[in-house]
Amino acid sequence: MTQKRRKTKSERTRRKEKIVSFVCLLVISVIWSIPLLYMVGSSFKSDLDLQLHPEKLFPSSWDEWTLKHYAGFLVRGGQVDNMPIWMLNSLWSTAASIVVTVVFDLITAYALVFLKFKGRDSIIRFLFLWMAVPGVIGTAPGFVIFSQIRNALDLSSAGTYLYIYFWLIIPSGTGIFNMLLMRNFFRSIPPDIVDSAKSDGAGHRVIFRRLVCPLARSTILLIVLFTFTGSWNNLAWPQLLLSGESSYWQTVTVALTGYTGGASWGQVGVSMATSVFSLIPIIIIFIITQNKMIDGIASTGLKG
């Protein structure tokens, strides 16, 4: 006859651990979410409510919920304003940035890890060093080059739009952090796998496509998230390039700054609403890539 086995000591401690950690993490998570809840709640509070009842996370009563702040930048004169156009601008330029970054990172990291050539190590060291360089020096000269080429080219309206976005998308592919992330991952691939593929006669193209890329899936997802966030939230450079151009050309982040300047009345509500709105796409991507991606950070973060 089998009796119910008494739990071993380690099993009991494990169960205690689970309960303790659950309680602690629950409390911490609640506190952790307060700022976000505050942001969302304030975006629905009316201006008066914001000033009179600042202690409440959410609007004080059911009728105080208002969409006025959102309507401010979404609707004008009964029609949907330019937001869809701005969304399109942001989405396509972000998608293009992601593609550019991922492609660049894949092929360059592959070369840096799997191909031997002279100067490889100095390039890596150079990249590491460059991370510490203050990029702010290059902003104004970059704009000078941008303008000189633009004046030399004498483009049409559509051409100018593409030219401006070219300058937004292409440089974003050269982020060093993402490159090093990819390189780290490639280095963590056990060399035996690659060697055995090589001895089976596989050329670099095959190794790249069939072997390395599929393995890198979680790292790629990680880079997708970082690039998406970086490109979507990018403010300074797009603001400079798009300043003074037709407002149809702006990205969401740049356009939303136009609603938060100036008047001090209702500042809080509008800023919260614009922040929530610009966070929505990021949260969507985050939810989609979440699990895979976090596992990805885990494995690439370790080596080197």
């Binding site: 704009f143 000078v144 303008s147 633009r150 603001q239 400079l240 300043s243 003074g244 151009e245 300047g261």
Partner: peptide
């Protein structure tokens, strides 16, 4: 007419005028 926010007005407008790049 294009509205340039207070924050960027002092940086973007001078740069655009001096480089004659979409200068107002």
């Amino acid at each position: 007419s294009e509205s340039i926010g207070d924050g960027t007005f002092e940086t973007s407008v001078p740069q655009r005028i001096s480089n004659n790049s979409n200068a107002p």
